[in-house]
Design a protein around this nucleic acid. Structure first.
Lengths: 202, 202
DNA sequence: GTTAGCATGTAAGGAGTTACATGATTTT
DNA sequence: AAAATCATGTAACTCCTTACATGCTAAC
């Protein structure tokens, strides 16, 4: 029931390995592309996590004997990981959850990244949960800002204004996605998100 | 030379106490208003930090004997902290630095929040450093995106697109601030930031 | 020939949260 | 009368990074 960063890591590994088997080094690159250079994971987190997941029976590691076709060069043996049946089941369970643990700051991005593997109803619930989480935050910041506006200098105010604007923009982004998901529900039962260019840009 | 979150905490405490003496509980509220509900600090971080700063001689805590005028009610004694001469010196040193440690993700916000207490040249250097840090990140994301665009599903792409847009918007925000700072340098030698409404909104 | 990238791991340590402990006061 | 808020602290624990250890291959 924990919902910290290790869960993010586990989910990301499960999701990526479900797309294709990978070895640790490559996995880390994909991971950090997926999560953004910010909030990247180091090897010191990744390898122990893989180890733990092997113990749990979610994945198995196979020693890949060098690059197969054209090489007799002994490139260091890579350990290619892939999901077990249990791991696939686990992934389905994770992707089916839609509580606060799915839409909080730490986890929302990973969950969104695997929306293609998530069913439509869950997608919608997560997007809506995320949206109300953000508007809730907006409320509380605006409220406490109103109580302390007088004594803040202009730079602090500007920082606050900019922060609010970023969150507001995120809400509008979610609105677009929610609309798209709802539309899709009545028309095409499934496919990716419509490209929403020009809706929050410029 | 460390540049982790504890530095952020120290800087924030120094900056806030320079504005007015405060006790721990109140300090934490201001802190979390300043830094945003996200990246908030808990008491488990704050009180030990205050203790350490007392040891360093940057601050002193005075036991405030209840709310002074109208009360004989024995409200629990609050410990009001204020900067020492050493602490003020320390704050000046911190606010005068403008290396990467000032414009990385973790620290930029705190530094910006105290720009009113920072001299104009340092402000400009930090804003420019931050800007180039972000464009650098933009480059590297775009580059690796170009190398892997084919195999990403639409949701992952949308996430990436949105991430880029957020960073681009941040760069434009910095551009506005930099322009304002430069203008000010030739006209009024000092005051707060001009309000830039309408420049990145809508 | 040396730097950079590929590849896998471990150990130690830092940083911060959660939970606990305690108790008064204000609001509902 | 209960619940929330004020107020200060500590201890244990989790999580993650840094630094280390190892060695191969490709590029400059």
């Amino acid at each position: 029931m924990a919902r910290s960063r290790s869960d993010v890591l586990e989910t990301a590994i499960l999701g990526l390995l479900n797309e294709s088997p990978l070895h640790g080094y490559e996995l880390r690159k994909r991971l950090n592309l997926l999560l953004g250079s910010f909030r990247a994971f180091s090897y010191g987190s990744l390898y122990p996590a893989l180890k733990a997941m092997v113990t749990h029976g979610y994945i198995v590691g196979t020693e890949s004997p060098t690059t197969p076709p054209h090489a007799l060069s002994g490139k260091r043996a890579r350990i290619v990981y892939q999901l077990t049946a249990e791991g696939k089941e686990r992934l389905q369970t994770v992707l089916a959850t839609s509580g606060p643990a799915a839409w909080e700051d730490e986890s929302f991005d990973v969950r969104f990244a695997f929306f293609a593997q998530t069913d439509a109803e869950t997608r919608l619930r997560i997007l809506e949960g995320r949206r109300s989480r953000l508007t809730e935050r907006l409320e509380s910041v605006k409220e406490s800002a109103a109580r302390t506006r007088e004594r803040l200098d202009e730079y602090t105010l500007e920082l606050q204004r900019h922060g609010l604007e970023q969150v507001e923009r995120e809400v509008r982004w979610l609105d677009g996605l929610i609309t798209t998901e709802r539309d899709r529900r009545r028309t095409r039962p499934s496919s990716g998100p419509e490209n929403r260019h020009g809706q929050d840009n410029h």
